[in-house]
Design a protein around this nucleic acid. Structure first.
Lengths: 169, 169
DNA sequence: CTTGATACGTAGCACTTGCTACATTGAACG
DNA sequence: CGTTCAATGTAGCAAGTGCTACGTATCAAG
């Protein structure tokens, strides 16, 4: 088990970042401890030195990605008041999507698949992300429309899902 | 490799049915060949006797479920003309959902998670189901509303997703 | 200079995965 | 009666899983 010095904490953060990148790029398939360790530039032995379990590592990587997603939302819809259809359009228009965004979205739906039967840490992460998302939408809407946040969120999720699945013919 | 007699074909169908039940009840986790064989009431050796690969077996089970789902749609919305919101409400109202329906839905979102990176046979199955679904919705709508089928489908998928994830607190 | 903690490598364990080689049974058919 | 072939059991393989035991190099503190 690794100690809790500043040095190891920094190392841990770096590993988490690289593992998050790996997950975005490759998803959960081919993400055994050995593959993750390779992407992090260390041996699998060291991976288990810095993290108690694979699950803990994954949980931290997902958390990091969730924060990143939340931050990027404000870039896509900078105005503080927007109509429902503006929000939906801004988040589902896939012409301008970067590889990174697509990767994160694909990972997102993989997480949902893993979360749906209750599997931790996926379920907790998924619910947290959804909650943040709904809050953010509610904040963008004019006050008398706030109750529609969940419905709009559903529309967005469904649209993204269809976009991703239908892509590549 | 198994022969193609009537007897073995019947046996195969029975196995596929039982495997489909297993998938609905337990999802893709804990669905290795040994677990599937146990649910089918035979040895894993026999599973591979009747089916060339696990993938082929899964593909057939998913196909069976897709047919079942398509059939049950007409039960939920029997009228041939319906408004968009009627359709959405009929398919997302979860107060009346049976365990079977919930199981199938959970499996559906698991399939999506597996399909999203292109994995066969999940991707093909997912797209086929979505296409049928969209057609079915278009058929229910009044002619001047048909172009909205995809949008409505997105709304339904998103709503179901949120329902399932938010359930159980 | 010793001690003790940190940091890291090598090797491997126990288990699960999809799949297979081989042997045997049983029934149908000439 | 003997041959053939479908049907099924026993045993196991090669690869991959998460994880660990054990040894060692490094380096700062006393």
């Amino acid at each position: 088990m690794s100690p809790d010095t500043l040095a190891t904490q920094i190392k841990r953060e770096e590993i988490v970042q690289r593992v998050a990148n790996h997950l975005v790029a490759r998803g959960f398939e081919d993400s055994g401890v050995r593959a993750l360790a390779a992407s992090a530039g260390i041996s699998d032995r060291m991976l288990m030195y810095y993290f108690e379990t694979k699950e803990e590592l994954i949980a931290q990587a997902l958390l990091l990605l969730a924060e990143g997603m939340a931050a990027s939302l404000d870039e896509l819809v900078p105005q503080s008041r927007a109509s429902a259809s503006q929000i939906v359009a801004a988040l589902t228009d896939n012409n301008e999507q970067s590889d990174l965004q697509r990767g994160v979205l694909m990972l997102w739906f993989e997480i949902i698949g893993l979360a749906i039967r209750g599997g931790d840490p996926y379920r907790a992460t998924a619910n947290q992300i959804l909650e943040n998302y709904e809050q953010w939408i509610a904040g963008k809407l004019p006050p008398n429309q706030r109750h529609r946040a969940r419905e709009i969120l559903a529309q967005i999720e469904g649209q993204l899902l269809l976009n991703l699945l239908t892509m590549g013919k």
